[in-house]
Nucleic acid binder design. Structure first.
Lengths: 207, 207
DNA sequence: ATATGTGAACGGCTTCACAGCC
DNA sequence: GGCTGTGAAGCCGTTCACATAT
């Protein structure tokens, strides 16, 4: 693939633009100007246009953007043709909540399986995917050639599980564990640090 | 308070440094050099020192940092003396998982109550705080003078609930709803966009 | 001698302003 | 005329390199 070199903040906003475009499609709006879409996404019109320029010439000067065309153009870059396989590791409270979260499915991800050291605990809980024993983790990753993992284990197990996953072929991790993971530079980790997020908020509102 | 003007990325990392320092305290390490702490936090030593310079002169040249002193210095800036009141709105799967998440408590936040349009659904579920009807939301915020809220309602309700919360006195929102919230500029919103986070990851690993 | 603290250089993202196209 | 697309300018955070302190 020849995409690449779109800055990370831009990729992030492209996801947001596409969610806005979905709403426009649902309400049968056919075209939109940069000002309108920028307002929906809470960004400046100039930023929206600059962001879109990374994916090429997608609008019509003097008119604006065709909603469906723009959606497809962004989807080609940020989206995936087929569902992308994802596994979730650590089926505690947070892990189970994420399993039930429908937003991943909506955006084209298939959470194939979850793994936990105590899979029997969730035996009687209805979940949208099977929960296997942690001991099957690496076999599964290798067999299914999964590349992405959502990590929700307690902090003290984060690094060890990560090492095993990377050995098995995982190259991208969405990390909810409150630890800094050490990984080779070709492996990508996106951290969602809930406590730090609240602390950040707290700092700035207590000016 | 005279703090302020510390850049947001720095505040974010200060939270991380303090989590590392906690571990050092637990293992009875008394001093640490910028190189060591930077390694733990996965940042460059120069960045660590620059970050710490925002809170003043906290190390000893030629020696390094005293672990407990540094911890306290950061805590004075980023932490809070007492527990800070927080409410959670939307006690669905994700909301309930966050209620059970102990990381907030550990970092000095007290989730006082949750609110949901159907509080009866969670009547028989054991949770660490009471769940009230959504109709009591604004009264509670006013009476308890809560300033921070964690928002986990479905996207379509996000904006309306937000408006009501702001009217009642909320000034900071940690938003897990997949919508862009429109708020006055004195109100702070930190977004945790789970789907966008996965899409971002997916984009960069499929180079 | 050694490690911090910091002004200066650097790099990357955002914003501007206008050229280009409908 | 109107709105997009984009080079240039501006801004902000990161990295460097060395002055400073012990």
């Amino acid at each position: 693939m020849e995409k690449q070199d779109i800055p990370s903040p831009v990729v992030y906003r492209l996801s947001i633009y596409n969610r806005c475009l979905k709403r426009l499609i649902a309400s049968n709006k056919e075209t939109i100007r940069s000002e309108g879409l920028a307002t929906m996404a809470n960004v400046k019109p100039s930023q929206l246009r600059k962001d879109l320029s990374y994916i090429g010439q997608v609008g019509t000067r003097g008119l604006g953007y065709t909603v469906t065309t723009l959606y497809k153009s962004i989807h080609e870059i940020v989206g995936r043709e087929q569902f992308q396989k994802v596994i979730l590791v650590g089926a505690g409270n947070l892990g189970r909540a994420l399993l039930r979260y429908d937003g991943f499915q909506k955006e084209g991800f298939e959470v194939m399986a979850a793994f936990d050291t105590s899979p029997e605990v969730v035996k009687n809980i209805s979940l949208p995917c099977p929960v296997y024993s942690d001991s099957e983790l690496t076999n599964f990753i290798e067999k299914e050639e999964v590349k992405m993992a959502i990590l929700c284990v307690p902090g003290e197990h984060g690094q060890h599980v990560t090492n095993r996953m990377i050995d098995a072929g995982i190259t991208g991790i969405l990390n909810f564990s409150p630890v800094i993971l050490k990984v080779p530079e070709e492996i990508l980790v996106n951290n969602v640090d809930l406590a730090a997020e609240l602390e950040n908020l707290s700092y700035f509102i207590n000016k």
